[in-house]
Design a protein around this nucleic acid. Sequence first.
DNA 1: CGGCTTTGACCCGCGC
DNA 2: GCGCGGGTCAAAGCCG
Length: 277
Amino acid sequence: MSDEFKEFYYHPQFDHDDHHRRSNSGGGAAAFPNSGNTLHNNMQMFDPSYLSFSEFLTGPTAQNPFPGPFDSSSVSSGSNEGKKEAKETLENEEYHESYKKDDKSKKKGADKKKQRQQQFAFMTKSEVDHLEDGYKWRKYGQKAVKNNAYPRSYYKCTTQQCSVKKRVERSFENPSIVVTTYEGQHNHHVPEAPRGRLAAGMFAPSMISSPFGPSEGPNSFPQELLGQMTHPYSYGGDEGTSNVTDPQTNGSSPRQQYNQFPDYGLLQDITSPAFPR
DNA sequence: CGGCTTTGACCCGCGC
DNA sequence: GCGCGGGTCAAAGCCG
């Protein structure tokens, strides 16, 4: 219960034109190429230049693709209650959000114009695949991915006007690691805490109002997640050495630092977020 | 009964 | 041009 710290890595969802790097030369494939070391190549850290994660996201998203190279700092999100798993550092997991549809309007008959949307991926150490983030999701598919014994699940936000999707899959090497990729942006506020917990407090509008206005924010990242990250990303100066702040050992109560995170049992496990393209 | 999950099929883009 | 792999749809089943 004290080792609950998460490392936030953000890594760009390389999407360029290189979408489908599917089987990077017969190996890599989708999410976790067993390479087990390329992670650092693709993961980037929160840039200190940004006051907050939100800003961080906004910046690069708006103009520069990515602020900086992978650094090495981590964040701790005071997960109390010790929900289920212990957090640890991921270092050899690579997550590649290859970007698939550029504009492909697949599907039969349905003319869905697929245009790339902002994506945000992060790794979470959790026993459950589907982390509750306050929004309601409907699973619309599941697929076995290559080089990964674990299937990838596809979810859509059930809110009508919202077309946010997310993919969830487990790391092949570390089954305890769940990689969640959000795509698109919620154009609404967090529903009435479907599960009754976190949603309400943790996604208080005040926290997500900034650059990520749920109403029409230019961003598409999980506001809830941002909420957590905003502060955690203190990024003191000795990043790389110390995991930012560990609420629990930091002396201050987690609740304080993370504002209203009553008892969220979902994103608390975030291990390493990727980065919105 | 309504909503969600499951699962097989279909479609599409990319690499060879 | 073909095959592979990934993403989505939609019908059926399950559960609350």
